[in-house]
Amino acid sequence: MTGNPLRIETSGGVLVGFVVLAVVVFELRTVLGMLFGIDVSGVVYFPVALAVLVGLLVAENALRSVGSKEG
């Protein structure tokens, strides 16, 4: 981004973004259950959701290191 070292997307930003996203994903099951009556088993939902989130985190990290090499 800009030349200011304070402004890079920090690991702190990624951590906060990840946790907020995780909470949203977690609440989605409640939305499915309460609003749409779709009963997704927690034993299936939570591991899958966790895998997706970790996948996103890894992908984000990979993209970022590519970006910083180019920049």
Partner: peptide, 22 residues
Amino acid sequence: QRGGTGLFGWLRALPWRDPAFT
């Protein structure tokens, strides 16, 4: 003021590392 742009993109320009802010 910290250089953030966009309709939602400005959220990325905030000091998320600062525990007081976050």
